[in-house]
Design a protein around this nucleic acid. Sequence first.
DNA 1: TATTGTTATACTCTATAACTATA
DNA 2: TATAGTTATAGAGTATAACAATA
Lengths: 141, 141
Amino acid sequence: MTREPEPASEPDLVDTLAHTAFVVTGALTRIAAEHDVSLTLVRVLGILRDHRRRMAELAERVGVDRSTMSGLVDRAEQRGLLARHPDPDDRRSVRVDITPEGRALAVRIYGQLSAELAPLIARVPEGRRAGLAAELEQLLD
Amino acid sequence: MTREPEPASEPDLVDTLAHTAFVVTGALTRIAAEHDVSLTLVRVLGILRDHRRRMAELAERVGVDRSTMSGLVDRAEQRGLLARHPDPDDRRSVRVDITPEGRALAVRIYGQLSAELAPLIARVPEGRRAGLAAELEQLLD
DNA sequence: TATTGTTATACTCTATAACTATA
DNA sequence: TATAGTTATAGAGTATAACAATA
């Protein structure tokens, strides 16, 4: 008979995922600070690289209150990184766009993240990298 | 002849690692907020579960200034989660200990993280979970 | 009535600079 | 001189509550 010491959870993988999150978030937070932006704004820039979004969508995706997003967009707009535009379909809504300056900053920051993670990724055999990424994405959804 | 479009970096795995970090950090930040603590304090509690640490060590590991850690420990101490003790070997130093209350809170929070990540981990075939954790740890160091 | 976004408010988090005590 | 920790200060990030405009 085989005992099952861990009925439901997988503590080892959970610990590793938490560890991964701390390392990656730490690197990104530090890089963001070097460019005088917060981690939250970095995430907003990343989201807006692909699609224009409404305030409420941004807040929901990043996980902050709308009032928080409102202030964050205020400051980013003053710095020329984002721009508000009216939504022709709903006059209550505001569409937030990334400016060319914001896009350039996003490219710099995410490029720097790639460069800093490269030595870590190099520890995984080249033939396993795609598989590792695929397994992680499967886990995330 | 084969072209190499990505000379040095591995953008796919970088993107996935960033995605992982956002998901896990988001869950942990939300859980922490439910218990009225910050993500930074959760990390401190996690570190102190294993070893007593000096203020400077804590600040360095978490990636904040010592003055920030000083205030954070102040508030956690007032709440009975941490305790300062003098260091007999160096009278400049302060050793920070986790209290039983702090330890109980850490157990609750990390347990809740395990429970919330369990459905995600379930998407990875059981036979691959240990391997995935090992590959990630290899990457992290 | 419900939703979108903003503002006012209050508190935490954060770093910088200046300081004390100790090494 | 250098290091450990604290305090004072200022600014960003955050949520809650109340609000106006629109659906």
